[in-house]
């Protein structure tokens, strides 16, 4: 059983090519403000907001905290990207965010569900904002479409070791 689990976990880790395991941490930029996001249950998540960044994914490397969630946001991105590194138009007036999420043991055990889960969370968001649920669909693995049209971009990176 243990051997099966280890094999399965290895397969899951190998099977997520868009996730990188070790990355260089970028130096923290100075031009940002730190606030909080208030969630529906009134809990708070720290928000690191920038006017403009290359990509929030890249900037988030400087805001990893293994103890709690955080989110890096920006008004605009100059080099936003999605699946397979494809560029994503990122003008002002749209939402660009990267969530830094510590995973507990139970989440790691279900790691293959994390990419679909991110898509489901976005689908939940659209529905909560008033988009008709009948129009929302998920193109496996996590590409959420509304009436067959693209509305978002998602990218996931896994970090095994944090250099603080």
């Amino acid at each position: 059983m243990k051997r099966f689990f280890l094999t399965f976990l290895t397969l899951c880790l190998i099977s997520t090519p868009s996730w990188s395991s070790l990355e260089e941490v970028e130096p923290l930029e100075e031009n940002y403000k730190e606030t909080t996001v208030t969630l529906s249950d009134k809990s708070l998540v720290t928000r690191f907001h920038y006017n403009d960044v290359e990509s929030t994914q890249k900037t988030a490397k400087s805001h990893l905290n293994p103890e709690c969630w955080g989110v890096v946001t920006a008004d605009s991105q100059s080099k936003g990207y999605g699946l397979w590194g494809r560029s994503w138009k990122s003008p002002i007036g749209n939402s660009f965010s990267t969530f830094c999420i510590p995973l507990d043991r139970e989440c790691v055990r279900h790691i293959s569900w994390i990419p679909p889960l991110a898509g489901l969370a976005v689908a939940d968001t659209f529905a909560a904002l008033g988009v008709s649920e009948d129009e929302i669909g998920v193109r496996w693995i996590n590409n959420v479409l509304v009436s067959g049209k693209k509305l978002l971009v998602l990218s996931l990176k896994r970090i095994l070791r944090i250099a603080l």
Binding site: S55, T56, Q57, A60, K61, L64, P66, Q77, G80, G82, W88, K89, S90, P91, G93, N94, S95, F96, S97, T98, F99, C100, I101, P102, L103, V108, I114, A118, V122, T125, L151, L152, V153, L154, S155, L156, K157, R158, I159, L160, I162
Partner: peptide, 18 residues
């Protein structure tokens, strides 16, 4: 282990940009 989940959502895109 930590995860970075990047999500970009089109909120206020003009028809021209789309």
């Amino acid at each position: 282990m930590m995860l970075r989940v990047g999500i970009g959502i089109n909120v206020d895109m003009t028809d021209d940009v789309l």
